[in-house]
């Protein structure tokens, strides 16, 4: 069984922590988001042989996060994935697809609280509303005639 080490960190500690893992020669095993209410939780996992440590960080929706891919190039996949699925925007990433890595048909499908998802929902609701009204009008015309 892998060691279960979870540590909570704040955004301003992030860069120092990542640099320290990089200097000690640990590799980035994982970076993923998960949606917690109206915030997003980011999990950074570092491993060195059998050792494994996880850093947990709560960030606001729409907050800009410094990218780790300049230090850990394999993170560019995870960063773009988190951007597409959770709306987490990373700054200074190695390759930034700008939300076109997975190109989901609905913005940030895993995080309904993000701003793009909210806007999409609002516009979808408005469109449904307009369509319903349009139908009513059409029916009204028929009854007048």
């Amino acid at each position: 069984m892998d060691p279960q080490v979870f540590r909570d960190i704040e955004l301003d500690e992030l860069e120092g922590q990542i640099r320290s893992y990089r200097e000690r020669g640990w590799r980035l095993a994982n970076l993923c988001g998960s949606s917690v209410g109206d915030k997003v939780e980011l999990l950074y996992s570092f491993s060195d042989g059998p050792e494994l440590e996880n850093l947990r960080m709560l960030v606001d929706n729409g907050q800009k996060i410094p990218a780790v891919s300049p230090l850990y190039p394999n993170a560019f996949v995870f960063e773009n994935e988190a951007r597409d699925l959770y709306g987490v925007v990373f700054e200074g990433g190695l390759i930034d697809y700008g939300g076109r890595f997975y190109s989901p048909s609905v913005p940030t499908p895993m995080n309904p609280a993000s701003l793009p998802a909210q806007e999409y929902l609002a516009s979808a609701r408005a469109a449904a509303h307009a369509e319903a009204e349009g139908e009513e009008e059409a029916e009204g015309e028929v009854s007048h005639g």
Binding site: N30, S34, S35, N74, A75, F76, V77, L94
Partner: peptide, 23 residues
């Protein structure tokens, strides 16, 4: 990640190929 119900809150799979993409 669990949330007290029989449904998980989050399940993440970081597969080997997504790590190898940069290489």
């Amino acid at each position: 990640k669990g949330n007290g119900t029989k449904y998980l809150e989050r399940f993440r799979i970081r597969t080997p190929s997504s790590d190898n993409l940069a290489g």
